[in-house]
Design a protein around this nucleic acid. Structure first.
Lengths: 210, 210
DNA sequence: AAGCTAATAGTGGAAAACCCCTATATGTCT
DNA sequence: AGACATATAGGGGTTTTCCACTATTAGCTT
């Protein structure tokens, strides 16, 4: 019996997944969580075999960060990222936090079960909408890429930039000079290896800086 | 027996909802659709009592537009909007297209059933995260607000703008001049009564132009 | 004390966006 | 035929970004 913890902030979706998994006799949903913090406490108290983790869960602690934290404390738990996005930035991040699986919310129900079985047996299951070669490359480059963690200030700048505010408006809101905003922006771009504004925005959108 | 059509582009979520509804003996899911066009054809061929319509379905035709279209062709079908967002702009739009119900994806499972029962009996069911008075105001102002519907081209421009592309990049993608892009943008701003880029972006984000 | 990071702010020039106009072609609706 | 909506594109001037630098201060760490 594979013991599963389901993490998603949308109750309806969570319940749906739970019901979907009830069809499989060797899978048992032992708990549910609605945000990152809850996911961590539930993981510790329930000690599941597999965690289904939605990426974009609210309250600061996103699915990736929660995954990292759980890995630290319980290295044997397998974690499958569950998301609507198949953007490369997401997949990269899933690889970086060493998620064992990655599936899209618009996969067929069987994929979910397959993913659970696969990661439970210790293998990797990435069902993504990009070519296999590209995926391989992302795995190879895993170690090479830096942490890419933005500072608090950079996160603020990112958020306000995604929301379409001009440098001057951002500067006004944060009581700093627009030149400082510019600097933060270019630091962010350098850190994340982004080469233009569109990539910056799309990274921000993909990572829920809104 | 209430015959229900479920519309959502995410197979996993759709299946989850279907399973959730199987618990209720007086509800029968007669069909599923993954996008707006499919929703319309399914609605016509299946003639369901209630449609559960996800707002942010892909391929141009969003849930609101699909709702409008179905209302035109089959005025007796009750439609419940299903969304992750409880932003006022969304609710406003749901009211504008005369959706009978509006529930959030992070509602409890029972809410879904309650909503179906309620709209089936001809009443309105809006379970939203805003105060009742504000909701009442939105209903009252229904007729007053303009259509505010963007043309196809304007929608494209909106989407690409939200994604952070520059005018020149957008022009390149659409094989038009950047001056034309500028014009479309300012037309959009005029139509929607937006006064700067941030408002434009945030309107776009709130309305899923991504 | 030296080194590092984060946050702040500046210069100066090139590029782009923004704003207010005008203008044309192609449709549809009445 | 005339009015209106849509999509296209340009002129010209102002403002803002973008980019590549330099620089300072505060707070850590070793």
């Amino acid at each position: 019996m594979i013991r599963v913890l389901v993490v998603d902030d949308h109750v309806l979706i969570r319940k749906g997944i739970v019901l979907l998994l009830e069809n499989y006799k060797d899978v048992q949903v032992v708990g549910e969580a609605g945000d990152g913090a809850e996911a961590i406490t539930q993981a510790i108290s329930l000690n599941p075999d597999v965690i289904l983790m939605d990426v974009s869960i609210p309250n600061g602690l996103d699915g990736f960060t929660a995954t990292q934290e759980i890995h630290k404390q319980m290295p044997n738990v397998k974690i499958i990222m569950l998301t609507m996005h198949n953007e490369v930035a997401y997949i990269q991040k899933a690889i970086a936090v060493e998620a064992h699986g990655y599936i899209l919310k618009n996969s067929q129900g069987g994929v979910l079960y397959e993913a659970i079985r696969t990661v439970y047996s210790g293998r990797i299951y990435y069902n993504v909408g990009i070519p296999q070669e590209q995926l391989n490359k992302l795995f190879e480059h895993k170690g090479h890429e830096e942490q890419c963690i933005l500072t608090v200030r950079e996160q603020e700048i990112m958020r306000l930039t995604v929301l379409g505010y001009t440098n001057v408006q951002i500067a006004g809101q944060l009581y700093i000079s627009s030149k400082t905003v510019e600097n933060h922006k270019s630091n962010i771009m350098q850190k994340l290896d982004l080469s233009n504004k569109a990539e910056l925005i799309q990274y921000g959108l993909a990572n829920n800086y809104m």
